[in-house]
Design a protein around this nucleic acid. Structure first.
Lengths: 275, 275
DNA sequence: GATGTTAGTTTACAACCTGTTCACGTGCAA
DNA sequence: TTGCACGTGAACAGGTTGTAAACTAACATC
């Protein structure tokens, strides 16, 4: 269970197609900050100056990356970095700070930092490193393109943040949609913690049941719109898997013909190939 | 590591994904290479020395990461890096090389490199950087690492935590699956204690018969789905061994032909190559 | 600024599933 | 034959999931 009162703000809804990255800058060197602020927008990154912060502060800022001079952390550098890594594993952190030992850098990287640059350094290099890290960071988030996904009777349209059966919208909320899209783009079993991290954007607290609740809401809407199909399957003790399947009863009375040779894999694969 | 008598709660189900990463090392400094080769295995990375290469060479090596001293590229450094970035965008590349200018490093990172370290450097730092890059790299693909394992009539799919005979699922529970996968991936006799440790995650209490019970459940489901084959063999006083074998009666009445020259090893190797 | 609506989170409880354990039968080895 | 090791079946307890509803924060509207 997180801190009492922590994480009250709803997390960010991951964009169906992320464009600009939000990069926090926590550094007391105003000249350095100013340079970055000037330089980043041209590279599809929005710089966001960050003052004193906690994991929750950063969480509410919905950052993709963070440039950090550890000197702003005063004393408890390691506990702070540790908390960051634990609570926000998806946040790309580039430490850019004064002289340090190999041991310190290694320790930081082991903890979860993405890069460690020693000052004095050329801002351009910081920008390049940040770009490289975020590029790798982004590869994961949007493996699949933003084309529509067809599965069973369902059509998921990332460009509209909505799913349809025929012309009829499912009226999904933002988070419901994010969950559905994530699952539909991966036809393997996904663990709850993984789902949470990728949809909510930060680490799942132990005992959190949000994923279950949202899966239920999704199932409800899916069932209402497409009663002959089941889409989300539970893997007990592990997580959920998305796979459109006609219910046995529907197969007995084939009012509507089953789409021939169009399994989920084939269709999504086709779309991935299009990309 | 719990108390010997603890373990009231069911242990965690080990993730079905591949953990070890394949890391190529292209460097003419044999001492440096040797250090990495010694150091990497402890961090779930398999070091693979790489000689002169092309993008195709690397592709066939199925690497996850590459440590590269650009001096091995002789002249055409930039065209080569460019080709790498274009042909193998999923490959994490860490350049570790002699003196360089900021402009060169920035250019490299822009091209698609994940990190640029200047020699002389501490090998430990290279390892840490590599680890950080691959960690971020891995976050992307939640597709479970291992491809399917085929044995006899059986297809084991780690991405679904499930085994199939044809299209028909065996309906294995999470722990049953973990046990089956472990055994199928090691076609030698495994002692009970070792099985327990690797599937349950902690030491087996003296007299615990859980492994036996699960082997029985597995055999039951295997027999129901694939009656002509036997998969799990008992070695009295030692443990169990996985090996798909047609039962003698089935051989007498060969309704279905035995797959020619397709031993367990060969088939799994073939699938691994496909990945 | 007050108020109603909506989305999201947390909690509670019931139903279900799983893993463990026990008891007993069978088969191997000395 | 005797002593273990292993196979088999069933029962139990506890964790996991489905489900509903209360609760909180955010938003829009007036």
């Amino acid at each position: 269970m997180p801190e009492p009162g922590a994480a009250v703000t709803p997390g960010p809804i991951p964009a169906a197609r992320a464009q600009r990255m939000r990069v926090g800058i926590a550094d007391s060197d105003t000249g350095f900050v100013r340079t970055l602020v000037k330089r980043l927008p041209g590279l599809a990154m929005d710089p966001i100056p960050v003052g004193p912060f906690t994991a929750d502060t950063l969480l509410s800022m919905r950052l993709d990356g963070l440039v950090l001079d550890v000197s702003v952390l005063r004393q408890n550098v390691w506990p702070c970095l540790e908390e960051l890594a634990e609570r926000l594993p998806a946040l790309a952190v580039v430490v850019c700070t004064g002289p340090s030992s190999v041991a310190q850098r290694v320790r930081g990287l082991r903890l979860g930092l993405d890069a460690w640059i020693s000052k004095p350094c050329h801002p351009e290099e910081v920008v390049a490193v940040l770009g490289a890290v975020l590029r790798r960071h982004r590869r994961g988030e949007l493996v699949a393109g933003d084309g529509p996904v067809v599965a069973g009777e369902l059509t998921i349209r990332p460009d509209r943040y909505q799913a349809y059966v025929g012309e009829r919208s499912l009226d999904l909320t933002a988070r419901e949609f994010a969950l559905l899209l994530l699952m539909a783009q991966n036809d393997c079993v996904i663990e709850r913690a993984e789902i949470y991290e990728r949809v909510w954007g930060y680490a799942m607290a132990h005992g959190d049941r949000s994923v279950d609740v949202f899966v239920r809401k999704l199932r409800q809407k899916l069932l209402a719109a497409s009663p002959d199909w089941s889409y989300i399957h539970t893997h007990f003790g592990i997580g959920y898997r998305f796979a459109p399947e006609r219910s046995p009863e529907a197969l007995m009375q084939p009012d509507r013909p089953e789409p021939l040779g169009a399994s989920n894999e084939q269709q999504t694969a086709a779309f991935a190939a299009l990309r």
